[in-house]
Design a protein around this nucleic acid. Sequence first.
DNA 1: AATATACAACGAATAAATTAGTTATGCAAC
DNA 2: GTTGCATAACTAATTTATTCGTTGTATATT
Lengths: 125, 125
Amino acid sequence: MRELTRAEEEVMQVLWKLKKGFVKEILELFDEPKPAYNTVSTIVRILQDKGFVSHKAYGRTHEYFPLISKNEYSKMHLSTFVNDYFSNSFEKMVSFFAKEKSISVKEMEEIMKIMEGEVKKQKAK
Amino acid sequence: MRELTRAEEEVMQVLWKLKKGFVKEILELFDEPKPAYNTVSTIVRILQDKGFVSHKAYGRTHEYFPLISKNEYSKMHLSTFVNDYFSNSFEKMVSFFAKEKSISVKEMEEIMKIMEGEVKKQKAK
DNA sequence: AATATACAACGAATAAATTAGTTATGCAAC
DNA sequence: GTTGCATAACTAATTTATTCGTTGTATATT
């Protein structure tokens, strides 16, 4: 699975939001200055070649939809990042950001609560 | 601050490891198949133009060093990611990976321990 | 049926990134 | 000082990504 280029990623973000959409609909969700219709159309077809999206045809018009979910992609993407920047350790990464105060106390408490639940669930097995 | 391209990132990873280095030394740390000397030299000069590295000159030879630390860059990079994929919430991101079992119980316990420490430290203020 | 409209497909033009050859200069060895 | 080597600077070539104009066809409108 390849990484998305910048332009590709923008289109995917829109498609993830829409679930499915025609080029016209995708275009509408772009901020100004919007790219040309053809630009989006091309990118979406490239994404299709690369296996990130597929489409359903209604006559000659195509409704595109993602083949990879935002969650799947972010999982893949973060794994690469954690591997490259934190020697593949989630713990190192999270600790780093906790210490850097990028995570608020409220967030940390919430995270701990969820982790306790997960740990309990895992250990119950 | 721009994002690094793939080739640029590889050079930066080496420079972060070396702390500082001549093109020749950077080249040595590359896996086979190593790029050409000139390729690394060019990339390092581009990195310099973009403000990611600088150099100290010894006569005609240049010793390059990062202007941005690996930690700084990863912070910037992850912030963008968290913003784009988890509506800017670290909590959402970490919870997601905890639930996805990408984080082991041992790691979670370690993370919780560190967070408890951080929370205490923050609250003490 | 003729015209207008909408859209996919194609492909050209440009821009950005990557790779490496060539050149020039300084230094070392002889 | 002449030769050879190392390396920075420059430049060319290639590849990949981005953007959008053009074309052809289907469908809707009159």
